[in-house]
């Protein structure tokens, strides 16, 4: 599994995009998916500076491809409404973070985004994520994706 309970925060205390990324990156670092937390955060935020990874429906999928990632991972956080410079201008309350080692060819990255996006288009799936109260609930929902 790309995701595990150590990579989930059900009530991430963050007011900005940067704080959200930092919070989720720190979880990945503690779980051994990243060997250089600052470098990963920088990669993700540089990408965000170029364009927003908000995908609509209050959801963002920040991601970073860098040698600081030792193992591909998916993290998830529920946040209070945070501005993510979304095209639809709406704030974000669900965040998925993806990390892929630089040596992986571009396709893994794209595959993860595609699989997640297919599910996120479904309103029921989004509702389930928002209703989920425990990390176990989230894992159970995401197990159907990957």
């Amino acid at each position: 599994m790309l995701i595990n309970e150590a990579l989930i925060d059900m009530a991430l205390d963050a007011d900005t995009k940067e704080e959200v990324v930092r919070g989720l990156a720190t979880l990945a670092y503690k779980d051994g998916k990243i060997n250089d937390c600052e470098k990963y955060i920088e990669a993700v935020l540089n990408r965000e500076a170029e364009y927003s990874t908000a995908v609509g429906f209050g959801i963002a999928i920040p991601h970073g491809k860098t040698e600081a990632v030792t193992e591909p991972f998916l993290g998830f956080g529920k946040v209070k409404e945070v501005d993510w410079n979304a095209l639809d201008t709406k704030p974000v309350d669900l965040v998925f973070i993806i990390g892929v080692p630089k040596k992986d060819s571009g396709s893994l990255h794209l595959k993860l985004l595609a699989k997640l996006s297919r599910k996120l288009m479904n309103e029921t799936f989004r509702d389930e994520l928002r209703k989920a109260e425990t990390k176990k609930d989230i894992i159970a929902i995401l197990e159907t994706v990957f």
């Binding site: 995908v55 095209l87 794209l110 985004l113 595609a114 297919r118």
Partner: peptide, 13 residues
């Protein structure tokens, strides 16, 4: 017209 729609395609170079 939706980002999710585009990502769903998984379109590689």
């Amino acid at each position: 017209k939706s980002i999710l729609g585009i990502l769903t395609l998984e379109a590689k170079k």
